[in-house]
Every structure is written in structure tokens, then in C-alpha cells.
Nucleic acid binder design. Structure first.
Lengths: 208, 208
DNA sequence: TAGATTGTTAATCGATTAACAATC
DNA sequence: TAGATTGTTAATCGATTAACAATC
């Protein structure tokens, strides 16, 4: 890898992807960084800088072709390849993820659900059977699962994460209320919903 | 307001709160910025800078009293007052939020659930009845609801958000796949789960 | 008192914005 | 060709880190 691209840039890419998706739906063929900047409430300069981290996708005097740019950003984000996802912990949040149809459209396919609760093991959610967590190893064999969503109590999170890494999982989408940053050989994305709620609470409180 | 505190700082506050909570559970009485920095994998300097945005909570030669600092950060985040929350859109994600017991411990109380689907209106989730969205105005009267979680399709998000603001809601915790940034008289926290999944996908892909 | 550790100022680093030459 | 708009360099701004005097 030549130049390291900052996470600040990466965080913005899915947002570009979304806006381009909307433009595509609206049948817009091309867009300038200036017009896009007005829609997205960011500077045109930032858009051009961000995109040029990955290559020159535009054309002087023309702007950016919406369809092409949408595809390219998709490739950058790895959406051109499909990803197999397992959900560990089939509580309410796990079920919400298993049922969220939007992910499929982005190339993320839920291929397995796991829990310890006998009341739910064996049931089917959105066409996928819930297995017991003890069958994890067997179920993941030759399945090419690269992402695991962790929606289980924090006490189980790290232990389970380590096991998943052993079984070849490359990315952990962590919803458990603990930071899983110090794990080797895996990429972790921590999503702490309660943190965002507290942020909101701060910003409301401040405005009094 | 004298000095504006950056969102970069605010985003870190809930994380401090969580680590202090753990220290509290473990019975730790005091902690230095240096020790905390090792646990959290941030610099001690950043911890001291962050905290000093809000006042001097420590003591030279001693460090920070865990219980006191935990309380103070709680106050900063507005957790000393309780917040009434309504959930708009009782799909899987809405139900997950309605059922998530952790929020109650932070002072966020789910006081209303709303949907348009007759199949779910009238049912009870975690002890709270689901009302029809048409009854929003009536239900919110004199209820002092300050936060609304939007877990509904993006096509309905903005319209519904405007109505909620009219009815006195101060903060919108938005899970719909659209950015609600240009609304007046309200604080918005956009939580786009699929964005974080794409970020994870990028970071996995990059490592090949 | 001596040691520890904060609060805070100064230095550094990185990210954002502005500007403009290149070019379609 | 003239106008538009990118790609990219330079300038600015803000956030992070280092350093250390103040002080418990």
C-alpha cells in the first residue's frame, strides 16, 4: 500500500455512495462536485480531494458521470464482491439485522444465525435457520464467511470474537457494549448505539 | 456559551463514561489519566484535554476520583435528567430499541411506540402499547417527550420528523437511510448502520 | 518535604479549504 | 475556441500530542 487513506475519508465514502444512488434513481447522468456539494452540505473541494485519493473519476469541464462514479465507489467499498455474514446472538437486535433487506442489495448475505437459547435454536428467521453456537465451527466450514455481526451480551463478546477469527472471519461488526480493538488478524467496527444516544442527549442539553 | 466544544470531543465522552462505569463496577476508587490512557488506547494528554473542556475534575498528585468523574460526565451528557423517548416505526429495529433495557439505566425511558400497520397497532411491546401514528399529536400532549427514534422507511422520515418537531421533540435519533440535517429547531443524530457495514467492508478489502 | 499527576500552554501533526493551472 | 470543471498544490484551520510549571 502506497499512501494510507485516513478513516475520516473512509467514513464519508458510504455517504457519497448513498447520494449517488439517489441521483441514479432520479435518472441524473452527470454531476459536478459543486452541485453535489450543495446537496450534501460539504465543500466541493472536499469531494474532489476525497475522490482523488482513489483516482481521477471525473473529467474537466464535464464533472462526474453518476453511474460510473457510483460503481467505482462500490468497488472501493468492496461491494462488487458479495460477503457472507453470520449473526451471533439472535436477540431483538440480531433479528433486526437478519431481517434488514437493505443489506442484501449491497452484497451482504446473511448465511447463518447462532444463539445459545434453546427456545430460539431451530427456528427460522427470514429464511435462515438458527443454529446453536456450539455448532459454529461445523457450520462455518467451507462456507467462506467473512463478516460476523456480534449482537450478544458484552461478557461473551471477546471470547466469541476470538473463536470467529480462528474460523476465518475477517471482519467483526460489533454491537456488544465493549470495544474490541485489540484483536489480531481481524478488522473490527464497533457500533455503540447507546453512545450515539448519549451524544444526542448532550447536544440537546447544550442548547438550553 | 463561551467556548464551543468540538463534536470530536463529544463523541469520546460516552466512551469515557463506559470505562468509568467498568472501573466503578470493579471497585476502583481513583485513576490517573496515564492508567486510563493505557486501558482505552488513547493518549493521557487527550484525556486531560478533553476533560478540561468541561472543568477541572482531577487533583494533582492524585488523579481522578472514579465515582465523581463518572457522575460529572453523566451530567455533561445530560444523563442526570431523565428523557422520554418515542419510537416511530415499530419494525424489527424499532422493536429492538423498545426492548433494549440498557437505555433505561441511562435515563432514557420509552414512553410511546407508533406505527401505521394495523397488524401491530394495539399490541404491547415491553409493556408499552403501540399507537397509530395518527394519534401522535394527542399522545404527545403534556407528555414531555424530548427524543424520537425514527425507525421507519426513508420516504416517511422527513415528513414525520417535521411533525415531531412541531410537537415539541428536541432530538431525533434517526435510523432512516436519509440525512436529516437541514431541519430547524431540533438536534439530529443520524445513525446509518449500513454505512458502518460498508466501512467495515472497505477495511477488510483493503487488507488483502 | 518529595513524588505524583494535573491543568494548561506551546509545538506538531493532519485534515479541510482555497486557489488555480491543466484540460476536456 | 471559450467555458466549465477537474486534479492538485499551497494555505489555513483545527485537533492531537508534548512539555512543564503549578500544586496536591
Amino acid at each position: 500500500m502506497e499512501k494510507e487513506i485516513s478513516q475520516a475519508v473512509i467514513r464519508r465514502m458510504p455517504r457519497y455512495y448513498r447520494y449517488l444512488d439517489e441521483l441514479l434513481d432520479a435518472g441524473t447522468e452527470r454531476i459536478s462536485s459543486n452541485d453535489l456539494s450543495k446537496r450534501m452540505h460539504v465543500t466541493a473541494s472536499q469531494i474532489r480531494q476525497d475522490l482523488n485519493n482513489f483516482g481521477g473519476f471525473g473529467q474537466q469541464g464535464y464533472g462526474y458521470n453518476v453511474k460510473f462514479l457510483h460503481e467505482e465507489i462500490g468497488k472501493i467499498l468492496g461491494l462488487n464482491e458479495s460477503h457472507n455474514v453470520v449473526v451471533i446472538g439472535v436477540g431483538h437486535l440480531g433479528q433486526a439485522i437478519a431481517n434488514y433487506s437493505n443489506f442484501a442489495g449491497l452484497g451482504f448475505k446473511i448465511t447463518g444465525l447462532f444463539d445459545v437459547d434453546p427456545a430460539i435454536v431451530g427456528k427460522e428467521i427470514n429464511g435462515v435457520e438458527v443454529h446453536h453456537i456450539d455448532d459454529l465451527e461445523e457450520c462455518l466450514k467451507d462456507r467462506n464467511v467473512d463478516i460476523a455481526a456480534l449482537t450478544l451480551p458484552k461478557s461473551q463478546a471477546e471470547k466469541t470474537a476470538r473463536k470467529l477469527v480462528e474460523l476465518g472471519v475477517k471482519g467483526i461488526w460489533n454491537f456488544a457494549l465493549v470495544d474490541l480493538d485489540e484483536l489480531d488478524n481481524v478488522t473490527v467496527e464497533n457500533v455503540h448505539l447507546s453512545d450515539t444516544l448519549m451524544q444526542l442527549s448532550y447536544n440537546i442539553t447544550k442548547k438550553n
